[in-house]
Simulated assay, not measured.
Amino acid sequence: MSQGRSAGYGRRLVAIGLMAALALPAVVWADDPVFAVFGQPAYTDPDGNVIDAGPGVPLTCANASKAAEQMNSGISPGMHAASVDSGNLTGSMPYNELQLRGPAARLVRDTITANWAPPPPGSSWATQMWPNDVSTTEYIAFPVAIYIPTAADAARMRVTMRYRAKDQLVAIYRNELNNGNTLAAPLTADTWSKGSAAGTLALDSGWRVGENVLTFVVRGKADDADGNMMTAFAAAFDAYCAPITPTAVPTSNEWGLLLLGLLAAGAGAVQLRRRR
């Protein structure tokens, strides 16, 4: 990426808009951000730039489970992560300005997670890509994107997510972030400690043809008097397609068939009489 274009990204730093009661700090990005949509074919953007095909496979009814697995946290490619600072800038942005950096979110060291609950099968504990200096509370955005090629696939797609969050999953955005948080309330904070139950979410609606971006926002809080913390998220996705509902074909019962036979016989008798 050219220096001029990199500088352009720097000028376009904006904040993720959270729910009204939540002031999410500004997102801080490193050099040369990359936005990857799994399974997206190569295309030319409105500025004439050729965008290479995204990694992985598109999300279709034929390969739903396999396609969803590539969204899992802790794999490469996989879910991304972005740390935030305490700037508290206001505003919102569409998903295509949420520039993802690198192949996947950074894994949390095993020595840290030794006393945490294990992540859902197929996933790993992941966190922001660089340390934060927030002393009391921080928010980490975990976005993941996948391509659905047809309207038929989008209409029937059913995606489930098993997750653990340290500390609390407070927001889910679908596609444009300025559409607002889809959670009516933050989800339970205790899905990360040993003995806690993993959370489960059904992401069955809102899928569309083309790019589909989900952004999960996790709130962390200080773990000790010194303000040390580790905000992290673990998510395992699976998908399937709802069966096609057959169109009901009207059928006739025995009385209906008898009546139909009588009508046919009557029509035949009338026709025969006319010929005579």
Rank of each mutant, 00 (worst) to 15 (best):
M1Y: 09
S6C: 12
S6R: 14
R11C: 09
I16C: 02
G17H: 08
L18I: 08
M19Q: 06
A20K: 04
L22I: 14
L24C: 07
P25D: 09
V28E: 05
A30Q: 14
V34C: 10
V34G: 03
T44E: 09
P46M: 12
I51L: 12
D52R: 15
G54M: 09
G56K: 12
V57E: 04
L59G: 01
A62P: 07
A62L: 02
N63L: 03
A67Q: 02
A68V: 07
E69R: 15
S73V: 06
G74N: 12
I75E: 01
H80E: 03
A81S: 13
A81E: 01
V84Q: 07
G87I: 08
N88C: 02
N88Q: 08
L89K: 07
G91D: 00
L98E: 01
G102R: 12
R106S: 00
R109F: 06
T113C: 04
A114D: 06
S124D: 03
A126C: 12
A126F: 10
A126Q: 11
A126R: 10
S135H: 05
T136S: 11
T136A: 12
T137K: 10
I140Y: 07
V144H: 05
V144I: 04
A145V: 08
I148Q: 01
P149T: 10
A151H: 02
A152C: 00
A155C: 04
R156T: 01
R156V: 01
R158F: 02
R158W: 00
V159W: 00
T160S: 06
M161N: 04
M161G: 01
R162K: 12
Y173N: 00
L177Y: 09
N179S: 06
L183T: 04
A184T: 15
A184L: 07
A185V: 08
P186H: 10
T188L: 07
D190T: 11
D190S: 09
T191S: 03
S193P: 03
S196K: 09
T200P: 00
S205W: 02
V209E: 03
L214K: 05
F216V: 11
F216P: 03
V217H: 06
R219N: 02
G220F: 13
G220Q: 07
G220E: 05
A222R: 11
N228G: 04
T231G: 06
C241I: 06
V249M: 12
V249I: 15
S252T: 15
S252A: 15
S252V: 15
W255D: 10
L259E: 12
A265E: 01
G268C: 14
V270Y: 10
L272A: 14
L272C: 11
